[in-house]
């Protein structure tokens, strides 16, 4: 992974938090999603198939949060565990993500952390050294 894009876990007393960075908004959504999945999964099985998700929201933080919530909701609503995420389209207030998934029954052992929600707490996309950067707190 290049220094221009990446993620890391951030300490949070009660819940879980990450910092993600990338050169553009598509990259930032991908890095934040990967950070979320990295917290949730340990040795996930290979992707069984892909699903397309559309997220909508005012540009910036809202769109980012909506993408992550849509990805997360696959577990409860579709019985699918997201494993990989790629942003295939991003225009204005809409993003399309291609999400590699595994049926819940096949990924139960790999699902080690139950992230319940993506919060708005302290949410702000900042510009830092030419990159976009964001910190996100997840409810567990």
């Amino acid at each position: 992974m290049s220094d221009c894009a990446g993620f890391e876990a951030v300490e949070h007393t009660g819940d879980l938090a990450i910092r993600a960075w990338a050169t553009d908004m598509s990259g930032l959504i991908e890095q934040a999603a990967r950070a979320m999945l990295d917290l949730m999964l340990e040795d996930p099985p290979n992707v069984a198939r892909t699903v397309e998700l559309r997220a909508e929201g005012p540009e910036g933080e809202d769109l980012l949060i909506d993408c992550l919530r849509s990805i997360l909701s696959l577990i409860d609503l579709e019985g699918l565990v997201p494993v990989t995420v790629e942003v295939t389209e991003l225009e204005g207030e809409e993003a399309v993500c291609e999400v590699g998934v595994v049926p819940l029954e096949e990924a139960r052992q790999a699902l080690v952390e139950d992230i319940k929600a993506v919060t708005y707490h302290g949410l702000e996309i900042r510009k830092r050294e030419g990159n976009l950067e964001v910190e996100i707190v997840f409810d567990v």
């Binding site: 933080e61 809202d62 909506d66 919530r69 909701s73 319940k116 929600a117 919060t119 708005y120 707490h121 302290g122 949410l123 409810d139």
Partner: peptide, 28 residues
């Protein structure tokens, strides 16, 4: 969780509508 998620999204707009200035968006 879903009731909270849905409400937070709706109330982001409501806070703007009613002119409520908040130090944290999670307090929508």
């Amino acid at each position: 969780y879903q009731v909270c998620d849905d409400a937070l999204k709706q109330l982001q707009r409501a806070a703007q509508k009613y002119g409520i200035d908040l130090p944290d968006r999670q307090l929508a």
